[in-house]
């Protein structure tokens, strides 16, 4: 199906273009400005070239944050994708029970992110939280405020709680598109459960799974609010991910130059990933 060429379609796109230009290009230019200039205050700027970029790329602190960020995203993907597929395979296909599951599963996705943080901050507290208190009763020494490993576990369990449903819902949508005839054919051939999964369900889920992997990767790469509320980036810097570090630098210390350079590098990394996402998805559509 070839679409007709019509350059007047630009008029239809114009409102979006103006709006997004206003809310994306203008601010981004400010960031570019800051990234190549230095200031002694009083609105006096002078050219700093690529100094800030060098400083950022050589900074141990940012390298450490990047390392933590990559580790975090990797763990998130390793847990949420298989778990999401597993849940989707066990979801009821239709009927009131299916609607019930869908609504309950979507619920964590609609809770404001800092409330998600608050819920888990309370839930994990040793004195008043169900999780923390139960673990203490069981004799497990758990304290996410002082122990880096416990803080990591809390943040990861929180993210699994928050976002696994997204993966499951996507896979569920993919599974719904498989005609029942496929399953009947597999039954006649006496295919094992694993083979049904490997040769019928997995190929049909490929497209949505790709969206799930990339969405989860990008969103976990940008995570800010939830760990910030739970741990504040601590103990020490143990859960200071890239966005937390960036906000600390820009708003807390007002180091505009390095923060801007950091922003641009951060944004370029995401841009690269988006490009892969886009290329693969448009290929999928053909």
């Amino acid at each position: 199906m070839d679409k007709p060429v019509n350059n007047r379609a630009w008029f239809l796109v114009l409102p979006v273009l103006l709006l997004v230009a206003f809310s994306a290009v203008l601010p981004l230019m400010t960031v570019v400005n800051y990234s190549v200039q230095d200031t002694f205050g009083g609105n006096q700027f002078f050219w700093a070239g690529l100094d800030w970029f060098e400083e950022v790329l050589e900074s141990d602190r940012i390298r450490a944050a990047l390392g933590r960020q990559i580790l975090f995203s990797a763990i998130i993907l390793a847990i949420e994708i298989p778990l999401g597929i597993f849940v989707a395979l066990n979801m009821p296909k239709r009927g009131i029970w299916a609607s019930f599951c869908l609504v309950l599963m979507a619920l964590p996705l609609l809770i404001p992110w800092n409330v998600v943080g608050t819920i888990w901050q309370v839930f994990g507290r040793v004195d008043i939280g169900l999780l923390g208190h139960t673990l203490k009763q069981l004799g497990i020494n758990y304290n996410y405020v002082n122990d880096a490993v416990d803080a990591w576990i809390t943040v990861i369990v929180m993210d699994v709680w928050h976002w696994t449903s997204l993966v499951a819902l996507l896979c569920y949508a993919g599974l719904q598109s498989i005609p029942d005839a496929y399953y009947q054919a597999a039954r006649i051939d006496q295919a094992s459960r694993w083979k049904v999964f490997r040769y019928i369900e997995l190929p049909k889920m490929q497209g949505v799974l790709l969206i799930a992997v990339l969405l989860r990767f990008m969103d976990s790469f940008m995570i800010y609010t939830e760990p910030f509320v739970v741990t504040g980036g601590g103990p020490g810097n143990a859960t200071t991910f890239l966005s937390i570090d960036l906000v600390k630098m820009a708003v807390g210390q007002f180091d505009l130059g390095p923060a801007a350079a950091f922003s641009l590098i951060y944004f370029l990394v995401i841009l690269l990933i988006s490009f892969v996402f886009y290329t693969v998805m448009t290929k999928e559509a053909k």
């Binding site: 994306a24 601010p27 981004l28 960031v31 990008m218 790469f221 940008m222 800010y224 890239l242 966005s243 960036l246 906000v247 820009a250 708003v251 505009l256 923060a259 922003s263 951060y266 944004f267 995401i270 841009l271 990933i273 988006s274 996402f277």
Partner: peptide, 9 residues
């Protein structure tokens, strides 16, 4: 895909 933290300031 833009991180909100980049745009805050």
């Amino acid at each position: 895909m833009a991180p909100a933290a980049v745009f805050a300031l």
